[in-house]
Amino acid sequence: MAGEPDDINLSDESLMARISDGDHEAFAQLVNRHSRMFYAAAFRMCGQQEEAEDIVQEAFVKLWKKPQSWNPDAGAKFTTWFYRVVTNQARDHLRKRKPQTEIPDTLGDGQPGALEALEERRLQESLEGAIQNLPERQKEALNLCFYEGFSNKEAAEILGVGVKALESLLMRAKAALRDELGRQGYDVQHKKYG
C-alpha cells in the first residue's frame, strides 16, 4: 500500500495506475501536486474560495472512488482530463447556486489610507466581477487560455469544441471585458482614468 521513497518523481500517469490499486500514498502525492492548481482554476470559474475548495474536493473524491474513469489509452494527459472534470464540477455548482455575484475579498484587509491599494482593490473587484459575469463558455475559454496557460488546442479539447470555436469564444470574451471595464471607468489603453 505504501509508496516507495523514490515515488516523488513518478508521473501523474504512474500515480494513477497505483491509485487504481488503492494506493493511498499515490493519491496523496497526486493531490499535493495538483490541488492548488485546480483550486485556482475552480476559483476562476466560481469566484468564491469556499466553493472552489468544495469543487476540487468533490472532483478528487470522484477520482479516488472511480480511478478507472480516466482512460490513459484515450490520449489525453491526466491534467487535461482532470481540468475537464473540475470544469464540469464547477458548472454543476454554478447551475445549482442562486444568481449572485459576490466579489471576493482577495486583498485581505488592505491598508487604509493607501490610495494605490484602494485603486488596486477596485480594479480587482471590477475585473473579477466582469469576468464572473461573462457567459459560461467565454469565461471557461478565457480562464483556460489566459490564466491556466493551456494552448488553444488543449483548451478546445477540454471544452469539447473546435479550435475555431474556441478562438471565437476568446475574442468575444475579451471584447466583453473591454466593454465592461470601459463602462466602469477604465480605459483599457491607459489602464485607468477619471
Binding site: Y39, A40, F43, R44, Q49, P104, D105, T106, L107, E120, L123, Q124, L127, E128, I131, F146, Y147, L177, L181, Y186, V188, K191
Partner: peptide, 9 residues
C-alpha cells in the same frame, strides 16, 4: 495587462 491584475486567494 489589466487581466494580469487578477488575484486568487
Amino acid at each position: 495587462t489589466i487581466m494580469k491584475a487578477r488575484r486568487i486567494p
